[in-house]
């Protein structure tokens, strides 16, 4: 931990995408995040797991200011996340997010969903934005749905559109907040396949998920959280085969038990 501290104190080098130092957060009286220290290097793929209410979603939501941390320092690409709206907007441009419930804009077509931010935030010409949108829709394998509306798509397709929408901003970091938890079992695979492919392309990813198969397959690091703290982190093989903490062992036995 002291080592991590030292590292963030120095000006973050280019390879550091995220650094969280001594981050604390409260919801009213409730202490949701306790002394979080985390550094993410470029190209790392991290899976965060833990029981519900352990603060894992809150942690990644702090990284693009959907939640405000009260104590400690968060830097994304060396930019400090504070009350300065300019910093927040700059960080959000570089950080894509995929939500549990997709959060697509229902009044816009799939293509418009993907073009919205590039056109308005990056001030990209419409033709170029459309080209990029079609490129990423192609990558998530639904270019033929471009002119439909989100309500006309299945859950799995909607989630893949949400991934494409985030990618259209060409972010440096992708956050996934339980991307498969709201999906029917038969649709989980198509979303996971997209995520695996994204991981293989070298994207820096932070995923909150319970898909342990995904964690084994693509993660460099698995982080286990409980009661707002990082309890254990390790490479996936070591994490699953040889967990150190009792809480991790209990958690793993519960989710892998059957």
């Amino acid at each position: 931990m002291a080592q991590a501290q030292q590292k963030t104190d120095r000006q973050a080098d280019d390879a550091t995408v995220v650094s969280m130092t001594g981050v604390n957060k409260w919801f009213g009286q409730f202490h949701v995040l306790r002394d979080i220290n985390l550094t993410v290097q470029k190209g790392e793929r991290i899976v965060i797991c833990g029981p519900s209410g352990s603060g894992k979603s809150t942690l990644i939501r702090c990284l693009n200011r959907l939640e405000r941390h009260q104590d400690g320092e968060i830097r994304v690409h060396g930019i400090e996340l504070n009350n300065d709206v300019k910093n927040i907007e700059e960080i959000r441009r570089e950080v894509g997010m995929v939500f549990q419930h997709f959060n697509l804009f229902p009044h816009l077509s799939i293509l418009e969903n993907c073009m919205l931010a590039p056109v308005w935030v990056r001030k990209m010409p419409k033709a170029e934005a459309e080209e990029i949108a079609m490129h990423f829709l192609d990558r998530v394998k639904i270019p033929e749905q471009a002119h439909k509306y989100p309500g006309q798509l299945s859950g799995g397709q909607q989630q893949r559109v949400a991934i494409a929408r985030a990618l259209c901003m060409q972010p440096q970091l992708m956050l996934f907040d339980e991307p498969t938890s709201a999906l029917d079992p038969e649709m989980i695979k198509e979303v996971l396949d997209t995520m695996v492919e994204l991981a293989e392309s070298g994207m820096t990813m932070l995923c909150v998920t319970h898909e342990m198969g995904f964690a084994r397959k693509v993660a460099n690091r698995v982080i286990f959280m409980d009661e707002g703290q990082i309890v254990e982190q390790n490479e996936p093989e070591a994490f699953f085969n040889n967990p150190q903490s009792d809480r991790t062992k209990l958690f793993l036995s519960q989710i892998l038990g059957h």
Binding site: L66, V85, R92, R93, F99, F105, W120, V121, A166, M169
Partner: peptide, 9 residues
């Protein structure tokens, strides 16, 4: 949140 996350003001 979706609008915030894609960087819209």
């Amino acid at each position: 949140e979706g609008a915030d996350a894609v960087g819209l003001s």
